[in-house]
Simulated scan of single mutants.
Amino acid sequence: MSKLLLQLKNKLKKKMNKLNSMYAVVLMASVFAACSKDEADPIIVVPPSDGSTMTLNGIAGTEDGTSAANSVYVDFSADKQTPVLRSSWDLGFYSGAEFKVILNATNGASVAKLSKTDLNAVTETDLTQANLVITLGGTAEYGKLDDPRETNILNKTAIAAISATDGENAVYLFNPAGGSHSSPFNVDNVYKIKILRKGAGYTLQYAKLKETTFKTLDVAKDTKLNFSFVSLSGGKTVNVEPAKAEWDMVWTWSLYYSGAPGSEFVYSFSDLVFTNNIGGVTAAQISTSTKSYVAYAEADVASTNFLSNRDVIGSKWRITSPATSAGVNSEVFYVIKDGAGNVYKLKFNSFHANDAGTRGKPVLEYKLVKKG
């Protein structure tokens, strides 16, 4: 009898040990689960770059540096550049509250507004080349492109703001490339387009001018981006600008303007620099006669006049005429405040053979002055 009791006691002990082990596992799992709920995964914050030197990659192939095929987006805090083919997109659909569409000035695009609102009713007979031609040096060309004289490219777009009433949205003829169309251009390259609202986004209707049916493409607003970009030849949205919080300036060729205030004329430039003002970037030009690049420090930030104009830098950072003097403008440098409040000072070191540089591959230097 005592032997039987001993066997039963041992079996009971083993069962209790097993139950205790299972309970321990359940208890530990509960603890870990509670910890995972109470303690969120740590957010890793990458500090902004302290500064660097960067050679922009504007050359995509064998093209001349004065017509570099890439636009190059720069993010100072990440020490990152993003080269994008200028010809990779046609239209940019604004992601903000307004319903506006921009043209690809970096590829020389132009539009002509028609009186018609039915895309199928538009034929080759609706094309008057003079209405779509951009004459470089002309002072009456601004309605054919987004007015580059504006501080914000959305202020005067060539395509009117998209109405919620479909019948109020006109058809436009669109020439995707060229810049200067002073001589007759190939009608086969011309598109007819109409843009409508669709909920919180857009619907694009498009076809080649000679085509009798059109395609449609829905374009959603993406709040991470300034614009959603579309390629008509590809019939799809394409990646162009990085996320609006991930770039500060872009170096490019573009339709722009020249001339005295009040009599500006349309012209095309290479080596233009635009800031991401829609993404909250501001900038200031500093004369080296008042403060040197080396001497500019955090104490100077408070008295710096930051502007939201997209072309604070523009083409003023370099000299091209006379040819013997071409090179970086050593009399100025720039201060950039990004959307996160980080402040960088920026200077260009070279871009031309005269300053030991390479056209299409400018070298810039920047330094963190104040962390946001």
Rank of each mutant, 00 (worst) to 15 (best):
K3S: 08
T320H: 08
Q81C: 00
S254Q: 13
V369E: 01
V238W: 02
K210P: 00
E141S: 04
Y293K: 03
K224G: 08
L8D: 09
V266N: 04
S67N: 14
V266A: 10
V343R: 06
Y202E: 06
E98L: 11
A97D: 09
A200Q: 13
E150D: 10
A243D: 15
L85W: 07
S254A: 12
W89D: 05
A34Y: 10
S330C: 03
K144S: 04
T53R: 13
F351I: 12
V230T: 01
S115K: 14
Y23C: 06
V273K: 00
L232Q: 00
G51R: 08
T55Y: 01
K224A: 13
K11V: 09
D126P: 05
V363W: 05
N349G: 07
N57Y: 00
V369N: 06
Y257G: 01
Q7A: 10
V240E: 04
K15Y: 01
L346H: 02
D41P: 14
G259V: 01
K18L: 09
T358R: 03
D50R: 14
V72Y: 06
Y256R: 15
A260N: 13
A69D: 12
M22L: 14
F185R: 09
H181T: 10
A60T: 05
K11S: 08
E124H: 02
K13W: 08
A260H: 00
K14S: 00
K116T: 12
N57K: 15
L145F: 03
S350P: 03
A33N: 09
V266G: 07
L19I: 12
A130M: 11
A97K: 14
K13T: 11
F274Q: 12
Y293N: 02
G360D: 04
A140V: 10
N329P: 07
S49I: 01
F333M: 03
S2I: 15
K100G: 05
A24W: 00
G357H: 00
R86C: 09
